[in-house]
Computed example of a mutant assay.
Amino acid sequence: MAADNLRKHVQTSGISKKVELVITSPLLRCMQTAVGVFGGEDSTDGIDVPPLMVTDAGDSNHPAISSSNCPPFIAVEGCREHLGVHWCDKRRSISEYKPLFPAVDFSLIESDDDVLWEADVREKIEDVASRGIEFFKWLWTRKEKEIAIVTHSGFLTHTLAKFGDDCHPDVKSEICRRFQNCELRTMVIVDRSMVGSDSSVTDYPGKNPSGEDAPSDVTCATPDGLPN
């Protein structure tokens, strides 16, 4: 499983000991990945804290994941996937999610039901990018310095395309490079007056299944079961 491979990388590279906060999109598949990669152990037996994820959450066939010895998790609407039309981009109600992910903080999500997704209106690409820029601005207000963001290919593709216009074309191309399935990239957000960092040695190229994690425009053109 791709998330299991990434979890091993996060553990062996030491990233898990550095991350102070995990921010996740409130879509089911994304939260499952977030807690699977950055959460505690797969057993909650004898641990007197609420689990990050209960057993078989969302028909995942996965054991419960402990919230012990791991950073806090916050679900944020701002980093959701491209909104509208595709059912895979619609979230379930927060009241449905809370029993499945008891230790995930949903307090920043204002509406129980998904009021952002529209069945017949697809979010404009420029609006996805604008939403992404506002999300990055919000990140600046956080006190944590090492933050893991678990989000979606389409959201990242359109948001990161807004960066790097004043850089060398090779740098711009690297910023906009599409994400592989379950890929991890390290990004350092700095003031323009500061010198950038060297390339990270902890990036993870993504594995199993192979190929790009295509935006939902490609992968979810038609409804295929219940929404997230």
Rank of each mutant, 00 (worst) to 15 (best):
A2W: 13
R7G: 00
E20T: 10
L28M: 13
R29P: 02
R29L: 11
M31V: 06
G36C: 02
G39R: 00
D48R: 12
V49Q: 12
D56H: 05
S60M: 05
P63Q: 03
P63H: 08
S66M: 06
N69G: 08
E77F: 07
G78C: 07
E81I: 08
E81C: 05
R91Y: 03
R92C: 12
R92I: 12
S95L: 13
S95V: 13
E96R: 08
Y97K: 05
P99N: 00
P102E: 02
I109D: 10
D112T: 07
W117R: 01
K124S: 02
K137E: 06
R142F: 10
R142M: 13
K143N: 11
E144I: 04
K145Q: 15
V150K: 03
H152Q: 11
G154S: 05
L156P: 01
D166G: 03
V171T: 12
E174Q: 15
I175D: 01
R178V: 13
Q180K: 12
Q180Y: 09
E183Q: 15
V188S: 10
V188C: 10
V188N: 08
I189E: 04
S193G: 10
V195Y: 08
V195R: 15
G196L: 08
D203K: 06
E212Y: 14
D217F: 05
D217Y: 08
D224E: 15
N228V: 04
